[in-house]
Design a protein around this nucleic acid. Structure first.
Lengths: 115, 115
DNA sequence: CATTTATATAAACGTATATTTATATGATAT
DNA sequence: ATATCATATAAATATACGTTTATATAAATG
């Protein structure tokens, strides 16, 4: 697979409203599937499907914690890249940096709750 | 339209192999439709369609020059953003910055050939 | 071991969109 | 004005993929 095809797959992965919503919810700390379902109000199989796509395309990673499976952003640089697009293409008239940032960032203190 | 939807539309616009190819070809200087057809080897209506999508979604802009219509990158920052993803997700083992950059950049000396 | 909770998978369905084929518009030159 | 070149548009087709419905796996608990 050439690099252009890989790039296309990444954009395709991000080109879904629900998946972006999931990423935005996950972006500051890892979340269990149940939390994602509750917050996004999407059906369980649909969330599961989107999470799989996001994982298969290198956006998310998982870790099991008892019966729960937590999803988290694989590489935090991805958030910077998404933020860049978010700031470039926000359609609101008020272009203040704080408001329309896609994700303010990962909370590193939430990253070490190993079981 | 909320910002998340706008972001989704931008990624959707970039989530096509042929469109990415067109952007990469256009990225260093404006190009006429004919040049794009010749280089990408895509059919004329297909190129026209993709150019329209790219323009409608704020990636490209046009300018007429006689019988020709030239397309160019509307905001060069878009290239930086694409480059960021390109470097994050290149699948080649050799991860040298030079090779897998999506676009080395706009050649500003090619930007002022007004008619 | 059986039941419940948490998550994943499979099949079926509908829709959006990339591509093709055919035609139209718009500018230039003879 | 007409023929030609450059580009756009419209309709038709095909396919990819998001969503739903139904079922399966996997872990925990009594």
């Amino acid at each position: 697979m050439d690099d252009l095809k890989k790039l296309q797959l990444v954009f395709q992965t991000l080109a879904d409203y629900n998946r972006l919503g999931i990423i935005r919810f996950i972006c500051e700390k890892e979340r269990s599937v149940g939390e994602i379902i509750k917050t996004t109000k999407l059906s369980q199989p649909l969330v599961s499907h989107h999470l799989r796509v996001l994982k298969e395309n290198g956006i998310l990673e998982t870790r099991r914690k008892g019966p729960f499976i937590f999803y988290y952003i694989k590489d935090k640089k991805i958030l910077d890249a998404i933020n860049l697009f978010s700031e470039l293409f926000k359609n609101s008239d008020i272009k203040d940096k704080t408001r329309s940032k896609f994700c303010s960032g990962w909370i590193s203190s939430n990253y070490n709750n190993k079981t």
